[in-house]
Design a protein around this nucleic acid. Structure first.
Lengths: 331, 331
DNA sequence: TTGAAAGCGTTACCAA
DNA sequence: TTGGTAACGCTTTCAA
């Protein structure tokens, strides 16, 4: 039979060490406004260790009136390895600034309801990827004590700091490259998977804008991420001589289907992806790609910290997502 | 100038509605032990809405003595799309059981230190992927009120429920398949990337065990995830006629390098991956793969819920990770 | 150098 | 049907 012990509190530590709760707090938090004798310190540490005492974060921040929690709703869409690396860096950097990063799985919550759920945790800052929040949501969070709300997405939201993911630039970049390579009838793959629209629509728009007035045509090409859909698309593709395939995975899918249908790449049709994944280098022809640079996790952590310290300051707006073409053999 | 308003509390709501804090609590929580008149209910709801009141989760669970938070340390290693889908399902299912799933970014924390950091949040349950915790860590968590600790990894940990990821089975499965296809000198790729060892070592061990006593040989083949490393490996591969490449991505990398070095696949050398990614189907030859089935998120959520309700029960141990070969053209 | 006590936002018991 | 009050675990001011 397993005995379920009561969770030790600072009062238990105090009792065991033969001091008051205040003293325990002083010792364990290294409060420097107060001098505690060395023997007492030792007794307190000893008692805490013996009991396996772990402070209660909620009680602490309740008393303090503020937390060190940075909340990040987990993005709904499937994310690639780039995002994972960015996340690690961000968490590491914030950890060094003594914040606690927590990802909240908001599966099934919508809009303001989601914002309220986040607000219940009283985070000191919230970093929202994608389009998961509106002005009302931001207001809810701020009223609940969030000192900074930062969005990481395609457009800015009233009241929040914004890291603008400039997906249009990705499309512009790809289209301009295809144009330079002599292509004039250009297709832009638009994934049919839900949730990817926030990225894909601006990419298409960017491609359109880049070639406006040049006489080249740009058409959106819907594509689901299945072999079958790719084969069908390859079978009767509209008259095109260049394709920007949304990203490297869709590009690989499409390229395979095109090759199977007898199209030569890049002679008949140039194909370019995005994300510059390793896998693109392994294809034949090697896949050209738009290399995307996410903001540095360190910089973003610094922004959050700054925003927390200076709550009420003007929201900062940054344009992130550097885009540059890596040409290989497919264009 | 932005006015930073004080966060409204239930006391503010009570004041505005002209009732006591207790009444507010009753109304907003739909307490059924107590009957509140309809007009009062309306006044309270009205006041809460007007103030934008959001309850304080920490205060609530402090008072209640228990939280509904299920903590999941974010895995350190890069994870694939399978894991992402599993996570979503798990979160959704737990959400429906009224738990709050929170992923904790523990970058930079080690062993018991990490467990203490998690314990500070007083989660009601902790799901630890990989090998991030030992018996001491489990004890810390339980002493801090966690009613269930579940590990999702290669081996069980004293005191915790275990979902055993049977990576050996993956290796066994792959090796047996290669053997069946007539291969007798088999290589097993062991990624050099740190953190993947927990998966790759058991896979190699499983392959060894599967072919023990058959006369077939099994050798570990270290490989870093770069084109260069793959090319070097392909240039002087030991005498092999079959390779289990750890997963589909390494398989793709290796297969490309082998083809570039003039080896025919599968005639000279059979190659099999794992994870059954879409990309494997796009290669030529199409890549055979070990299909891995993670536990269902729903079942896992049910396990967690059961464990929470019956804390102190015997830890459950489940073997998860179904492994089955999907043969395509590369073997 | 240490202790007593107040109070953070909630909820649950008991009394009115 | 509603309100007063105590308590959850912690920090911090004030007093000794």
């Amino acid at each position: 039979m397993v005995q379920i012990p009561n969770t030790p509190t600072s009062a238990d530590v105090a009792r065991l060490a033969g001091v008051s709760r205040a003293t325990v707090s002083y010792v364990l938090n290294n409060t420097d406004a107060v001098r505690i004798s060395e023997p007492t310190r030792r007794r307190v540490h000893e008692a805490a260790r013996e009991l396996g005492y772990v402070p209660h974060a909620a009680a602490r921040s309740l008393r303090a009136g503020r937390s060190r929690m940075v909340l990040m709703p987990a993005p709904a869409l499937p994310v690639g390895p780039l995002y994972g690396a960015f996340l690690d860096e961000f968490q590491g950097a914030l950890g060094r600034l003594d914040y606690t990063v927590v990802q909240y799985g908001s599966v099934g919550l919508q809009g303001d309801e989601a914002a309220r759920a986040w607000a219940e945790l009283r985070p000191v800052a919230v970093l929202v990827p994608g389009t998961g929040i509106g002005p009302r949501g931001v207001a809810v969070l701020k009223r609940s004590g969030a000192r900074a709300v930062v969005t990481l997405g395609p457009e800015r939201v009233e009241g929040a700091h914004a890291l603008l993911m400039d997906h249009e630039a990705v499309g512009r970049c790809a289209a301009a490259h295809l144009y330079e390579r002599g292509r004039r009838r250009i297709g832009v793959v638009v994934p049919e998977e839900p949730g990817l629209g926030v990225c894909s629509r601006p990419r298409l728009a960017g491609a359109r804008r880049a070639l406006r007035g040049t006489g080249a045509s740009v058409v959106g090409v819907p594509l689901a991420y299945t072999e079958r859909a790719a084969a069908e698309l390859a079978a009767d593709l509209p008259e095109l001589d260049g394709v920007f395939a949304y990203n490297d995975e869709y590009a690989m899918l499409l390229m395979r289907a095109l090759q199977d249908a007898g199209r030569r790449i890049p002679e008949d049709l140039a194909v370019i992806g995005a994300d510059d994944l390793m896998l693109g280098r392994l294809l034949r022809p090697r896949l050209s790609s738009v290399r995307i640079e996410l903001p540095s996790g360190r910089e973003l952590a610094a922004l959050v910290d700054r925003a927390v310290r200076d709550a009420g300051g003007e929201p900062e707006v940054h344009r992130v997502l550097g885009a540059s073409v890596v040409r290989r053999e497919s264009t």
